[in-house]
Structures are given as C-alpha cells and as structure tokens.
C-alpha cells in the first residue's frame, strides 16, 4: 500500500478557546485521538496508542498531526494584523470527503442557487474569467481576480455589489478566502475553512474569520458564516461519488471550475489522495 502522504500534515482538532482538562475525543484519518489541556496549560493531543502527537495552537484552533510535520503550519500574515476581529465559528460535521468540503469552498458558480439572495442571485449567474496559478515557492494553489455579483456580500454589506475574491489552498484540507472588505477599501477580509479529516468520507469543518468590522455584533458574524456553511452541507452530502474524483471522466468541468481543476491537479501531483477517488466510475 502506498503511504498516505497527507499523514505529515497539520489538521485542526479543536477550538483553542474550548480546550479544557476534560478534553475532546475525536479522530484524525480513522485514528481515535484525544485533545485536552495539559497540566502545563498547553494543548496535549494523544493518538490511538497513547503516543503524544505534535501540537500547536494557531488561528483560534488546536492543530495536530499523526505523522512528522516537516514544515510549520502555513502562515496567514493577516491574522496578526491589528484591528481585525477574530471569529471562532465553531464546528459542523459533514458526511462527505474532506476534499469535497474544500472544493466546494473554492466554487462561486453555486452562489445563486445554494446561497440565494445572500452570496448570489439569478440572473447574475455568469462566472467571468479569473486567474489560477500554483505558487511554486509556497507550493500553494491561488485563484485571483475572481469577481461575482452578490446581493449581500457580508453581514456589514447593504445592497448588491460586485465582490472580488482571492482563494488560496495552503494545505490539502484548508482554504483561505480573501474577500473585498466594504468598510475598508483596499483591505481584504479573511475567511478560512479548516477541515479535520475524520475518515475518507467524514469530516469536521471549522470555519474561522479575521475581519475588519467593528460594527456587527460577534454573534451575527458567527451566524452569518454558519448559515452559509450549513446551506452547503446538503449539497456536500449528496454528491456522487462520495470521494473527490481526480479523474473527471464522469464529469464536465468548465472554465468556471478552473479553481476546482487546479486544486485537484495539485492534490494529484502531491499524492494527496486521502478522500479522493482515483479512477472515474
């Protein structure tokens, strides 16, 4: 059997703010793990056989790995920028491949149908051309100059605007979205999707945000993002096949799916296939 090349990656396993001595029993790629606050106050993660797993706390979450991470967790420089509000959105479990959850996050063409009157609305369905690249230095997928008409782009937005986005995939189950920030032109709001792979067809999704918004109550920000994600949940649980196909032989990707195609190409090149289907059927 080929080695799971995703084993050495970092994955979110808990909200840092909810870490206590009692802890949380969860799983990572099929292995039961336990997450708790140790006596020294640091996060402690133990694997199925009781071994200590690598741990770090970043971006509101506890991160861990079943293997031996060669690199520190990816950087989100905006997370340390003064003036941003950091929003713990919490967890939502989805019966789907962790890779499908990320792919859906990278997709804008579904906004008018799934996030109707919030992130999109008919007749504004056209996806204009945008740019996608693999940034070799960082080894990340980037989509830029993504524009889409949005009736209500964010909790702080009133009325429809054309919103610009950038998408970034720094790890196989994590994605970061940069989005036009209405109160601060020139800056980008940061919305992330951190996915914890429980199994190849089951994941816990931890959205997190770093926003320039001093007005909106925190609970409203949380509810807005939970609304968006839960609207996606029934889609994710009803795609066939359950795993993410790396061969599009049974699909018809279009120019609007460019980010999805680039993401799948990047997964394929690195052998990041936990949660993927290799042969179309």
């Amino acid at each position: 059997m080929t080695r799971n090349t995703m084993i050495d990656g970092w994955y979110p396993v808990s909200l840092a703010s909810q870490l206590d001595a009692h802890g949380r029993r969860t799983a990572l790629m099929g292995e039961p793990i336990a997450v708790r606050r140790g006596e020294d106050g640091n996060a402690k993660v133990t694997g199925g056989n009781g071994r200590d797993l690598p741990t770090c706390i970043r971006y509101g979450h506890v991160w861990s790995s079943l293997g031996d991470p060669q690199k520190p967790l990816f950087a989100i420089p905006e997370a340390d920028q003064p003036g941003r509000r950091l929003v713990d959105v919490g967890v939502v479990r989805v019966r789907c491949s962790p890779l499908r959850a990320v792919e859906n996050f990278l997709d804008i063409a579904h906004f008018p149908f799934v996030h109707t009157d919030i992130l999109g609305a008919e007749p504004h369905t056209e996806v204009q051309n945008y740019k996608v690249e693999i940034r070799e230095d960082e080894d990340e997928v980037w989509a830029t100059q993504v524009k889409f008409y949005q009736p209500q782009a964010a909790k702080s937005a009133e009325g429809g605007i054309t919103t610009e986005y950038m998408y970034r995939v720094p790890a196989p189950t994590c994605s970061i979205l940069y989005k036009t920030c209405p109160p601060r032109p020139g800056e980008w709001d940061v919305i992330t999707l951190f996915v914890q792979p429980l199994a190849e067809d089951l994941c816990d999704v931890w959205p997190w945000m770093a926003l320039f918004d001093d007005e909106t109550p925190m609970t409203d920000l949380i509810h807005f993002q939970q609304t968006i994600f839960v609207q996606d949940r029934s889609i994710l649980e009803n795609q066939i096949p359950g795993l993410l196909p790396l061969d599009p032989g049974m699909e018809i990707p279009t120019r609007a799916d460019l980010t999805s195609v680039a993401y799948r190409r990047w997964l394929k090149r690195h052998g990041y296939t936990y949660g993927a289907q290799l042969v179309a059927q």
Partner: peptide, 20 residues
C-alpha cells in the same frame, strides 16, 4: 470557445495515470 475551455479543463486533469 466555452466548449474548447471545457475540453482544456478536462484534459488538464485527465485520467489518474496521466500528468499534464
């Protein structure tokens, strides 16, 4: 053009034993 784009999208991923 849109269909040729679709052709390009599909081929750039291709079957699993192929790297484009």
């Amino acid at each position: 053009a849109e269909l040729i784009d679709m052709m390009e999208m599909g081929c750039s991923l291709g079957p699993i034993d192929v790297w484009v």
